[in-house]
Design a binder for these strands. Sequence first.
RNA 1: GCUGCUGUAGCGCAGUGGUAGCGCGGCGCCUUGGUAAGGCGCAGGUCCUGGGUUCGACCCCCAGCAGCAGCUCCA
Length: 731
Amino acid sequence: MPVLKLPDGSRREVAVGARSRDVAESIGKRLAKDAVAAKVDGAVVDLDRELPDGEVSFAVLTPKDPEALEVLRHSCAHIMARAVMRLFPGVQLAFGPPTENGFYYDIESPTPITEADFPRIEEEMRKIIADAEPFERFERTTAEARGLVADLKQHYKVEHIDDDLKRYPSLSFYRQGEFIDLCRGPHIPHAGKVGAYKLLSIAGAYWKNDVTRKQLQRLYATAFFSQKELDAYLRQIEEAKKRDHRVLGKQLKLFTISQAVGSGLILWMPRGATVRGLLETFIKDELIKRGYQPVYTPHIGRLELYRTSGHFPYYRDAQFPPMFFHPLGQAVDTWLNLFDAKQLTEPAEKALLALVDEYVKATAVAESNDQKHQALALRAMWVNYQNAETPEGKAKALREWLDGQEAYLLKPMNCPHHIQIYKAEPRSYRDLPVRLAEFGTVYRFEQTGELSGLTRVRGFTQDDAHLFVTAEQIEEEVGANIDLVLFVLSSLGLSDYRVRVGLRAPDSSKYVGAAEDWDKAERTLVEVVKSRGMNYTAEQGEAAFYGPKIDFVVRDCIGREWQLGTVQLDYNLPKRFELEYIGKDNTPHRPVMIHRAPFGSVERFMGILIEHFAGAFPLWLAPEQVRILPVSERFADYGKKVEAELRTHGFRVSGDYRPEKIGYKIREAQLEKIPYMLVVGDKEQSAGTVAVRDRVDGDLGALPLAELVQRLTDEVRERRIRQGGAAKSGE
RNA sequence: GCUGCUGUAGCGCAGUGGUAGCGCGGCGCCUUGGUAAGGCGCAGGUCCUGGGUUCGACCCCCAGCAGCAGCUCCA
């Protein structure tokens, strides 16, 4: 006999075979009417499922429970799929799960669906919901289930059973009228529970997230129990868009991106550059306190360097192409690439050979020794290539020539340069940890579809540092760096982040180094995070190719996650570059490297910060801290005097001396999110005061100038964050 | 890179197969005003680029570029 422990602590015995729905009814009419699903021993189930024997915890889920909303959305995905199938014959269904803010269904339609079809689909959904038919669950053995989805001509479902579900003895289905879907459930009792819904967008998504497979159409939508909630959600999206850093960056003149310069390359305008500079100073001061040494290194480096580090071979496609001195360098490089990828066509090969041949002939009469040497090397490649009997031999000929060519790469990371600084002098165990810090700008050729404002760019600056430590120092240094990241985040009031420990994927060729080093490194990172009592998720496949890492991940205004701060442990680059220090025992030892960047990318950090503050930077970061607003032109002289005085105290201040009304000037300053507005007129001039208007709290009344200076000085020194309050949003 | 949508004045947007408008902003004049928009006037556009269809293209077709959303990727 089932015995239920109810949320209020009471116990209730129910008959064998009783369903959640029966229990809800026995508790109360109102509850039965509101019931969406039930939660039995922590698992959400349909109201129609029979309760298990024995003692279980039990709760009825109503629209108030977040889990109920998830059930509703999952069911609404079925409703949407059903509507689509009615309107578009021959549709194949893939997956249709709920998401954080709604749901989607991946489908393949013989006639592609577009946003123009949304009204029709929504209308069809309206009918289905009005009919309020029940969701009926039934089970089949896995073999029968496969037959059923095959009969339904749903080949993605067949594939899904074959690939992933064979290990289950039976599978569940849900039927709603003519619509049957292979589905784990649970579902709402009937379609009428859907109070409001809206199709949002359509996008491509690969079957099983695999680029090599078919791309399906993903229909995004959302649903709620009430129209009011849907309206609130849509309003919230509109509000979020207003704090988008791409919008605010333009409005507040922080940065721009020019096609004349290139996609994903940020141009910092004076205001943005001011904020960025202040952030950089902030962290630089902090690094000095924590024993870092500043270094500067160039934006480019020899290609060979990045071959040694592994960056070039591992991330070739994500880099700007290497710069070769030899006119044919780029061509041969591409050639070898095509070759390795087995994409070299015969005409292309012919053309490339002809190109080399022509060049060899043209440079036959070389004059200097260097030219002669070059000409001979190229000729040797040409001969070796054509004499080679195997593809490997051909590739070798190309590679040998290429390796002899001088080439440079825009640096994709700073570590190889810092490593060279480490290697520039002999190191003793007494010197360690060596902490080399640089705001290093790196370049990565991100795929076009990935570029996004400041958060994903092709040139960005890391507040980078590399620590060279002994094995015994690892834990302490990793810990100190976590503390630094936490300090940075809390200084800026960023509290909404999660911590991810990125581990390697079990079976992947994209990592370098020995398994035991990896195990050791992964264990260390997990231990450090655990010992600090931090919440974290360990995620496989999130490691860097050279080592595991701890990432601090935040969300942007539309909910996308971005990695900011990172601490990475690396046993591999020290090996690749044969780094050493002399130990107490007077023999060489290998140091371990820690890569770390509290901001991550300064560009991305700025983007997140702009959204975090909605463009209203705290006083210490504000590009313009104070604006003088004379009531009329008659007080311009006094205004300028105040302006000059504040400037001598180091404040970033300007004055608005246009012949506009005071209300107009205040509105503009407010919309520009300037922390303090100083209104000056007759009264202030004769009293030697300023009327202070605060961005957050509005009119503060008159203050003697000296008092104001003190107040602002304190606010800056404490890096005080004051947000919200009376500010209107503007239009 | 893939799928879809978008590209018109500095910004936000209308618009039509017969060479373009609105709001804000800018500039000028008037107003010298006390805490979120004073009035009048003026200027400003390769309608993303390149082809094509057409008597004629900003509009229709093709290709490219860029932006947006999603997928994939992210050292």
